[in-house]
């Protein structure tokens, strides 16, 4: 009995120490996350006016949201532009960084050099620097423009896709640069795959192509999800994003006020959350693969069944 009491005490102490380690974060969470979150909901439902006496709030219900969609064309336009861009850029970034990660994982000489090179964008990418590079045209590959790729593209595509695809090409280098962190994530993931899996597959006669589809991709699914989430969040919060520039401008603008910009940031965030949810649906849970236990190929089965039908 006595002993048991002591064990209980120990575990209580254990959890207490755990809480102490978590304490700073928890306090921060309440002060800088939970409280502002609630406040921003309140703001988005109010018209906030700054007067000499301080802030005044007039409850307007969903008025702010209605204003954004009816009175202000800029926000909706920029938001939809951003979403189209996201849909176009996200797969590109993911595929590209997966390819780079696989390349880096090969047995090559000067491994360290290549790794240093490909992780360089993580360091360099930032709003003003990107803006500078964009403005001076360092991010376009001259060859693409010269060989009339644009014209070829605009011939094929429906008109609403032309503009985004063109910007896609003109900012191709930028996209490659965004793939720094996803590459890192995928690279770490690739190294966790057990080498004996490849070996076993090779023994069973699988080529590297087959083992990419059957081993690498399935075991990378979680990593791809993380990469998708990261890229979405990154693109959404990057400083050259039009939407958040608009939100900030409105916030500092006396006529528009905090209410509208809080409402905007909620709409924006819900869109991003929807995008992340979509990624989760695509890569989140493991699909059940059907294991085929038959020793016949499909065509053999069909022939067998046909023969059976004929007999009956």
């Amino acid at each position: 009995m006595k002993k048991r009491k002591k064990i209980l005490k120990l575990s209580a102490r254990h959890s207490l120490v755990g809480w102490i380690f978590m304490l700073p974060w928890t306090i921060g969470f309440v002060i800088f996350f939970a409280y502002p979150l609630i406040q921003s909901v309140v703001f988005s439902l109010n018209k906030v006016v700054i007067t000499a006496q301080g802030r005044k709030m007039n409850y307007v219900g969903s008025g702010n949201f209605a204003d954004i969609f009816t009175k202000d064309a800029a926000f909706v336009e920029r938001l939809s532009n951003f979403l189209v861009e996201l849909i176009l850029e996200l797969p590109l970034i993911i595929v590209f960084s997966l390819v780079i990660a696989i390349l880096l994982n090969q047995k090559v000489k000067c491994k360290g050099l290549f790794r240093t090179l490909f992780f360089l964008p993580i360091i360099v990418v930032s709003g003003p620097v990107l803006n500078m590079l964009l403005n001076t045209g360092s991010t376009t590959i001259p060859l693409i423009e010269q060989y009339g790729v644009y014209d070829a593209i605009s011939g094929f595509l429906p008109s609403y896709l032309q503009q985004p695809v063109q910007t896609l090409f003109s900012e191709l280098l930028l996209i490659l640069w965004y793939s720094g962190v996803p590459t890192l994530i995928f690279f770490a993931g690739l190294q966790k795959i057990d080498a004996s899996l490849y070996e076993a597959a090779y023994m069973d006669g699988a080529s590297s192509w087959v083992s990419f589809w059957k081993i690498v991709l399935p075991s990378m699914r979680g990593m791809i999800l993380i990469g998708c989430i990261y890229v979405t969040v990154f693109l959404a919060t990057s400083e050259i994003n039009d939407v958040i520039i608009l939100i900030r401008d409105y916030m500092l603008n006396v006529n528009k006020g905090f209410g509208i910009s809080a409402a905007m940031s909620w709409i924006y965030s819900l869109c991003i959350l929807a995008a992340i949810g979509l990624c989760y649906l695509l890569f989140g849970h493991e699909r059940k693969t059907k294991v085929k236990h038959s020793y016949m190929t499909k065509s053999e089965i069909r022939r067998y069944q046909n023969a059976k039908k004929k007999k009956s």
Partner: peptide, 12 residues
Amino acid sequence: TFIVPPYILLVP
């Protein structure tokens, strides 16, 4: 805290 965009919290 990672997924919720920081802009919601910006104003408050």
